[in-house]
């Protein structure tokens, strides 16, 4: 019963987010601030993880190729497929659920605890539009992060494959270009947009409707990570089933 209430409350929140807009000059400033906090601020960790995980994918593929009949270009092919289809959109989104999601929940939750949200409401401001809408807009730039993750993941695979002595550069690049299906990019970016929406709204919901004090802010941040991850994984399965099968 509580889950049904929570789902209802989440959709009611979404309705309020898109109602009675904040003054555009203020909103523009808020969106730029959120882009800086949520997108630019995440580039470092995303770049680091993407490069090294791409490298690991290439090494693992190479080490599991025992049959001499399998061409070395498969290392590049497997790296591309893993990075573009799953690692960049899904794995990075799970990491972002921890980094960005808990940041959103704790910042909105702290505002709830210290009556800053009440202050907005008393002033006649639609606090959900003021706090959540800029985050949704900012996270629509999230696919740019995923593009960087894809590029660095493949670059990491190339570096590990070539400099680790597992493949030649020509074979790796040949594998990268082999059987490329552009539709798979559409699939990857479509689910990236869905994950971006989940990343902006689920942690906001957790923070906005939390009750209690500092301890509950911590609990809400943990719940936020768990539920955002669960929804990303579930959405990933449904989208994959619908678009690829």
């Amino acid at each position: 019963m509580k889950y049904l209430q929570d789902i209802g409350s989440y959709f009611l929140m979404l309705k309020k987010v898109f109602g009675s807009f904040t003054k555009s000059s203020v909103l523009k400033h808020l969106i730029l601030k959120e882009i800086n906090d949520l997108i630019i601020g995440s580039l470092g960790i995303v770049a680091f993880i993407s490069f090294f995980v791409g490298g690991v994918v290439a090494i693992q593929t190479a080490l599991n190729m025992n049959n001499p009949l399998i061409p070395k270009s498969l290392i590049g092919f497997a790296t591309r497929q893993s990075v573009i289809l799953e690692f960049a959109p899904t794995f990075i989104s799970i990491i972002m659920a921890g980094k960005v999601g808990s940041f959103i929940t704790s910042s909105i939750g702290s505002m709830r605890v210290t009556e800053q949200i009440d202050a907005l409401e008393v002033m006649g401001i639609n606090s959900l539009n003021y706090l959540v809408f800029p985050k949704i807009v900012a996270l629509m730039f999230y696919p740019f992060v995923i593009v960087i993750a894809m590029f660095l993941g493949i670059l990491g695979g190339w570096v590990a494959g070539v400099y680790g002595g597992f493949s030649s550069s020509t074979a790796f690049i040949s594998g990268l270009q082999d059987s490329f299906i552009p539709y798979q990019l559409f699939y990857a970016f479509f689910k990236t947009f869905v994950f971006a929406f989940i990343l902006a709204t689920v942690p906001s919901w957790q923070g906005f409707y939390m009750k209690g004090g500092a301890l509950e802010v911590g609990k809400a941040s943990t719940n936020s990570f768990v539920w955002t991850s669960v929804l990303i994984i579930a959405a990933n399965y449904i989208i994959t089933q619908l678009l690829l099968s």
Binding site: S20, S110, M111, T114, E115, Q116, D118, A119, E121, V122, M123, G124
Partner: peptide
């Protein structure tokens, strides 16, 4: 209605227990 209530709230000043200043 909602618009009138919003206008009324623009005429309200509120001092919260903890100050409620934006961090």
């Amino acid at each position: 209605d909602d618009d009138l209530q919003r206008k009324l709230r623009e005429e309200i000043g509120m001092l919260f227990q903890g100050g409620a200043l934006f961090d």
